[in-house]
């Protein structure tokens, strides 16, 4: 399911003195089956853009086309449910959305809202709990008895249980420990790879962009300033620094090595790429340094 933005602008509290620009003239397509990362500094419009992906916000002007549904400023709030089932959203600190008495009921909540029968929803809950790496024993516990990281996983399971075809992630690993981060990111990558889920990821972690994304959108002051593959985006470190963005740690490392005389055909973005590029150079360089 493609999501297309056609000259989309959004103004917060339009028509009041408190009005503020959210998005300005965004035109972009997020292709079916792609893994898109949205980066930009705080307040650049990333979250505003995200909320257009399932019509939580409707454009002040322009059109958002989600699958075969067109969303404009005139679209009514009715009949948006099928669309919201298609586009699953994991918000920042998603554990805040838990409310049911048991984990099982919380995960089944989404599917039941979209008309999935009770028995099937419960089966989905069991399935999703294992998918996000929790033991089945948590199903009968209250979500409020879990640790923060476990709650996050339950919340993510609740979104996955709706079986969306587009998964929108707003900094899904913020505040998780390193192991939890890696687990979650690899889960999303696996879903993307195996179920051809379209993934849209908002992140400040350039490493994640380099490791997982195949497409990057760079936002600045409500505008889309650059789109391309991670390689294209990270090719210009000076431009990134000017836009208050960074490079993946691997690329930073590679640049430091470059200054010491190592040579790279193109700057490696991932650890594996860096290792592969270093390997043939190492014996020679190591010999030089020994002198």
């Amino acid at each position: 399911m493609d999501i297309t933005f056609d000259h989309v602008s959004y103004t917060y509290q339009a028509g009041t003195p408190f009005a503020g620009e959210g998005l300005q003239d965004i035109s972009v397509t997020i292709h079916d089956g792609s893994y898109t990362a949205i980066i930009g500094h705080t307040g650049s419009g990333k979250s505003t853009l995200l909320q257009h992906l399932n019509a939580l916000l409707k454009p002040t002007s322009g059109t958002v086309t989600i699958g075969d549904r067109q969303i404009t400023s005139e679209t009514s709030n009715k009949n948006l449910k099928p669309l919201r089932q298609q586009v699953g959203m994991v918000f920042q600190f998603a554990e805040n959305q838990l409310f049911e008495q048991t984990v099982a009921r919380d995960i089944a909540f989404g599917p039941k809202n979209f008309g999935v029968p009770e028995a099937k929803a419960n089966a989905l809950a069991e399935q999703m709990v294992t998918l996000v790496g929790l033991p089945a024993s948590v199903l009968t516990k209250s979500p409020f008895d879990l640790s923060g990281g476990q709650m996050r996983r339950v919340a993510i399971a609740g979104v996955l249980a709706m079986q969306p075809s587009v998964l929108v992630l707003d900094e899904p690993t913020a505040g998780l420990d390193p192991a939890g981060r890696l687990d979650m990111m690899q889960l999303f990558a696996k879903l993307h790879r195996e179920q051809h889920l379209t993934v849209v990821l908002v992140t400040h972690q350039m490493d994640d962009v380099a490791d997982y994304a195949d497409h990057v959108l760079v936002m600045d002051h409500g505008r889309l300033v650059k789109t391309g593959t991670p390689r294209e985006i990270f090719a210009d470190p000076a431009w990134l620094t000017a836009n208050q963005l960074g490079l993946p740690k691997t690329t930073q490392m590679a640049m430091a090595l470059q200054r010491r005389g190592f040579k790279f055909a193109e700057l490696p973005l991932t650890t594996t790429a860096l290792a592969a590029a270093l390997l043939p150079q190492l014996p020679v360089k190591a010999g030089e340094r020994d002198e």
């Binding site: 939580l56 449910k81 918000f91 920042q92 805040n96 959305q97 979209f114 979104v159």
Partner: peptide, 16 residues
């Protein structure tokens, strides 16, 4: 607002 949005994304209709 955030929680409302999160629940709307999970299929809750507020005010209908």
């Amino acid at each position: 607002t955030k929680i409302m949005n999160a629940q709307r994304a999970r299929g809750v209709d507020f005010g209908t």
